[in-house]
Amino acid sequence: MTRSKLTLTTAIAAVGLASSLAFTSTAQADYPEQDIRLVIPYGPGGATDIIFRLISQEAEQYLGESIVPVNMAGAGATIGSRNVLESDPDGYTLLGSHDTIALSKLAGTVDYSYDAFEPIALLTQTINIPTAHANHEVQSADEIAEYVRENPGQVRFSMIPSSTDHFFWAQFFQEAGIDMADVRLVGYPDTGEQVSALMAEEIDFAMFNLPSGGSFFEDGTFRPLGIAHPERLDSLSDVPTLRELGIEMDHSTSRGIFAPKGTPQEIQDTIADAYGQALENEEVRSRIENEFGSVVRFLAGDDYLEFLDENEAALSAAAENIDFQN
């Protein structure tokens, strides 16, 4: 090839590259131009589904396009997460999920965790609460360890295998100085079954939160034993935090938005800004806090990445005490 032809070819390639970059930049600047699909890896009607729908309905006003929730339940929330994992990184498919992403990896259900996605923003945290039935002699969480020592092998804790409460109890036992060999973990398929079991006094303790246990706390059927959060909850202001009781742990269901790996940063920022503005709406915040027993906690960018790193490290430490085969 002559030098003149080589120069011409190089010039054409440069123009093509510049045009491609310009097109990509323009496409990102115009984002979004169509509806955005938000995959929720759970069935309709639960706290996760309702919270994401509530915030997304407000966020779409700042995007100028609809955010369409798509429930994709099954396989421990991994059908939905895998669908997003394999979607194009164009900003038109998002995942609304929580700690289950890391839990599934630690339990060996899937081979990916948070870092397989682009984390957009943390939105809310639902604070978890160790709970007893009203007739139980234990009055607060700091009495559980002594009760176990007095009744080794007889104290029954409910959990959904490999779910949030499974990890909650593993971490609680570690922080409270309880040997897992001295307790009985009783598995249930869902929260409803756990509620029924505690109500029937078939178990001693369960982990609930305000969406699942609030009405039972209010009518006295169940007793909240401590709040796994740095601050007390307004609706349970007389219940101390676990830290106040000498148990150094916080635990919550932390819900956030994720995008497929490779989604351009400009698109990530646009989505995060819309959700951040949505959470400034006082009516939205009030419903999140009063109806769903959750706290608004918006983190984006490096702050969210740091949060997820710390979250996964805590879950990994708890997982060392869990036999996922049983």
Rank of each mutant, 00 (worst) to 15 (best):
Asn151Asp: 10
Pro69Phe: 04
Ala132Lys: 07
Thr93Trp: 02
Gln125Gly: 12
Thr26Trp: 15
Val284Cys: 08
Thr48Ile: 12
Phe172Asn: 00
Asp99Val: 04
Tyr112Met: 02
Met1Lys: 12
Thr124Met: 03
Phe52Trp: 06
His136Gln: 10
Thr191Lys: 08
Asp88Leu: 15
Gly246Glu: 03
Asn290Pro: 08
Ala314Tyr: 08
Phe173Ala: 10
Trp169Ser: 02
Gly45His: 01
Leu245Cys: 03
Thr124Asp: 02
Ala319Lys: 07
Ala59Met: 06
Val138Lys: 02
Asp88Phe: 11
Phe217Gln: 01
Gly220Val: 01
Gly301Lys: 04
Leu38His: 03
Pro152Asn: 08
Gly108Lys: 09
Pro41Leu: 04
Phe52Cys: 04
Ala73Cys: 06
Asn83Trp: 14
Glu175Pro: 07
Ser19Gly: 15
Leu123Thr: 02
Ala170Tyr: 01
His251Ala: 10
Ser163Ile: 10
Thr78Cys: 08
Phe205Gln: 01
Phe258Trp: 15
Gln125Ala: 12
Pro264Glu: 03
Gly108Cys: 07
Glu65Leu: 10
Glu244Val: 08
His136Asn: 11
His229Tyr: 15
Pro119Arg: 01
Ile101Glu: 06
Ala75Pro: 03
Gly16Trp: 11
Gly16Met: 14
Ala200Glu: 13
Ser212Trp: 11
Asn209Trp: 06
Leu236Asp: 01
Gly276Ile: 09
